[in-house]
Amino acid sequence: MALVRNMKKYWVFYVMMLPGAAFLILNNYIPMLGVLIAFKSVNYEIGMLKSPWVGLDNFQYLFKTTDAWIITRNTILYNAAFIVLNLVVPVAFAIFLNEMRNKFFAKVHQTILFLPYFLSMVVVSYLVYGFLHDTHGFVNTTVMKSFGLEPVQWYFQKEVWPYLLPLVNTWKNVGYYAVIYLAAVIGFDDEYYEAATIDGASKWQQIKSITIPLLVPMMIIMTLLQIGRIFYADFGLFFQVPRESGPLFPVTNVIDTYVYRTFIALGDVGLSSAAGLYQSICGFILVFVSNWVVRRIDKDKALF
């Protein structure tokens, strides 16, 4: 009954959401039944539904290795770093770009900031290789030489990569995230600032007590969204950029690269499906917890 009343009152909303919801059912919810593959040994000739069940066998390989802990740790730590960097740096960039007096320059910088986002990871990996190659890379031939240092085999130096990968990731994505925050900053009502100016607040005070608090909801959403995918690593970044260099594995091996190598060797969709399910469930739990925490603090800012 309540539903009918609700439908009557908000029918316009339901109509508005219809195309989107229909799409989600088609594109996302129906294929989700495919998670069954994770528990099966697939034989296409007899069909997916009739293929034999294998229980949790497909999950075993994820924990078979002594590296299970390392790849999980790498995945989470890198992603945690990315979440923080993708929050702090773009927000700062957005605020500064907004405050820049010369609007023309601000626009030019915005555009240029965005350029790295266009490059595919394969091309990025060539660029990094161009910089770090042991005999004709820019770093060894120019930078190290001018400091009078010996050339270094960068692709064997695992100490460097935990800093290098976040650097590459931020360089590539900062423009993208900055645009989101910039759009939000532009949307803020000028009246807040005018009132603050009349009260004699300095620009820095205004940023601290008006801009940032107003950005918090957007920051929370972005963070929650990224936490949901914290068990998924950016495959291109971890596979292409370190060039599968073995000595770097302790700091570059993540769940996605691990699964990919297994898939290349075995070609078994059950195994990759199992990995995906494992990543999703872990992310799901984390999001639920974080959302719960947010809700405890401020009900309106929670995602759901």
């Binding site: 959401m17 989107g20 919801a21 989600l24 088609l26 594109n27 996302n28 919810y29 129906i30 294929p31 989700m32 039944l33 495919g34 998670v35 593959i37 969204l225 949901g228 995918r229 969709v269 990759s272 499906s273 995906g276 399910l277 999703s280 992310g283 799901f284 999001v287 995602l303 759901f304």
Partner: peptide, 23 residues
């Protein structure tokens, strides 16, 4: 909240390439 969750859920879970391709 329900419909927010309905869409957010699709970010977390996917059924893999093959079933999606079949659709």
């Amino acid at each position: 909240k329900f419909f927010t969750f309905f869409i957010f859920f699709t970010m977390l879970f996917n059924g893999g390439l093959v079933p999606w391709y079949l659709v």
